[in-house]
């Protein structure tokens, strides 16, 4: 009896998969998660045959799943590392990379902070712990308190690669489990500095202008500045999938890249590829 039930259940689970040609899984970055979910929902509304399951877990988890074959699309907030490419190579799997949108990171401080712009070098000094007081970068005599995301986050990796030049964060940096917690803490701590996605900017924190050319020009973080690439701390969001299942996933990927899909990108709070 129990066995029969199980079989029925398995059948019920498999049915949708058997009926539709477009049934696949997306796994990976938590940054991409809200975007993929929104896109998948709206795509499934248009195409009743499609069934897309979206899960998070982190960019590394998604790419590992792609290599082991447990997901169809890996969503990632960083490009594939050499290490992972080599593993794909070893497994004999050819893959495609698609940029679906951009995300910009804003460096935020407490609104009471007088400092309003920093260069990349200063940011590196602050986040690696070499600059410990705001007066060293033109602010008042106040200890700098560094907030960062946890080490499992793709945002952490991206900031480490692009702003810290692969150096490690200061040991006394406070690691927060969620972006919302960083906004909250920076908003209530005078000497705080942190980084969050553009979509998370709120009134109780101040976003800094950033310079990547040693202080010649400072750019304010905004969707427009991220789109024309003048704002430097911008990262692409990627989809990776195996070339052999391109037929199955391409309607969905094309939908994201379409005008409608890109409009949704902006609605969710990310930066579209182009207007």
């Amino acid at each position: 009896m129990k066995n029969k039930n199980l079989k029925l259940m398995a059948l019920a689970l498999m049915l949708p998969a058997m009926m539709t040609a477009q049934s696949f899984k997306i796994k990976g970055s938590d940054t991409c998660l809200p975007l993929s979910q929104a896109e998948a929902e709206s795509f499934m509304k248009k195409d009743a045959n499609a069934s897309i399951a979206v899960t998070g877990g982190g960019s590394g988890v998604g790419l590992a799943a792609l290599i082991s074959g447990t997901t169809d699309i890996a969503q990632s907030s960083r490009s594939m590392k050499m290490d992972e490419k080599l593993k794909m190579q070893e497994a004999g799997k050819a893959f495609k990379e698609v940029i679906i949108a951009y995300d910009a990171l804003a460096v935020i401080v407490n609104p009471s902070n007088k400092v309003s712009q920093l260069t990349r070098e200063q940011l590196e000094g602050i986040f690696t712990g070499k600059i410990a007081n705001w007066k060293e970068v033109g602010g008042e005599d106040l200890k700098i308190i560094v907030y960062s995301r946890e080490t499992s986050s793709g945002t952490y990796e991206f900031f480490k690669t692009h702003v810290l030049n692969m150096k490690n964060f200061a040991a006394n940096a406070l690691l927060m489990p969620a972006t919302g917690a960083i906004v909250q803490s920076v908003g209530q701590t005078k000497g705080a500095i942190g980084y969050v996605g553009l979509a998370y900017l709120e009134k109780n924190v101040k976003a800094l202008n950033v310079s990547y050319d040693k202080g010649k020009s400072f750019v304010q973080p905004s969707v427009a500045a991220a789109m024309d690439k003048t704002y430097p701390i911008t990262r692409p969001l990627y989809y990776y999938y195996l070339t052999k299942i391109e037929k199955t996933v391409s309607p969905f990927v094309n939908y994201i890249l379409s005008t409608e899909g890109q409009k949704l990108v902006e609605e969710v709070g990310y930066v579209p590829l182009k207007k």
Binding site: G57, G58, G60, A64, T151, S152
Partner: peptide, 9 residues
């Protein structure tokens, strides 16, 4: 809790 998610198995 914070690190197990991304630590390679």
């Amino acid at each position: 809790a914070a690190e197990l998610g991304e630590a390679p198995f």
